[in-house]
């Protein structure tokens, strides 16, 4: 039986009727048509589906859309403002922090959350903070360098 829900995603209200079993990730991709959020494993390991739920990084494959009724969600599409890259996007670009790009949205959101909580992390803290996301292309070198390059800089 479907339920009516309403979420705010990147500041935009999205309403839909969904089955309770529909994951938040599928809701974001299919109902909100924001396909930047990726599905890499659908069992909570790879981190590709990471989004912010009321400001905190979560795996959207492990939450049902009905659970997020009324919540504020931020996805990768919400990072750039007025056509300007967020400093993390710019840093990922400059540090070759992506190759195939599939894990990138998840890494950006995890990095964003990490810096929100700890604006000036050490390299070890960056590595630990991002250890819930898997990249198969970069060996994490560019990603860690990118986050390091913006650590300590103001919003």
């Amino acid at each position: 039986m479907k339920r009516a829900i309403a979420l705010t995603i990147n500041g935009v209200r999205v309403e839909a009727e969904v089955e309770p079993r529909k994951t938040l990730a599928d809701f974001i991709r299919e109902d909100a048509e924001l396909t930047g959020t990726k599905l890499g494993c659908e069992h909570g390991v790879c981190g590709a589906c990471t989004v912010l739920l009321n400001g905190e990084a979560v795996r959207s494959c492990l939450i049902f859309a009905v659970q997020a009724d009324g919540a504020e969600i931020m996805t990768v599409e919400g990072l750039a403002q007025n056509g300007q890259f967020h400093k993390l996007q710019q840093a990922f670009w400059e540090n070759h922090a992506l190759q195939c790009g599939f894990c990138t949205p998840g890494f950006l959101m995890s990095s964003y959350a990490l810096l929100q909580e700890n604006p000036n992390p050490t390299e070890d803290e960056i590595r630990e903070g991002l250890s819930g996301n898997i990249c198969r292309c970069t060996g994490y070198q560019g990603i860690v360098a990118a986050v390091k390059s913006v650590a300590g800089s103001a919003e």
Partner: peptide, 19 residues
């Protein structure tokens, strides 16, 4: 040179087959 293809991946606009 930094990659010319990167911006669309960084904004979530890149489309894979699942998208």
């Amino acid at each position: 040179v930094k990659r010319v293809e990167d911006p669309r991946f960084l904004t979530g606009d890149a489309r894979y087959v699942a998208d």
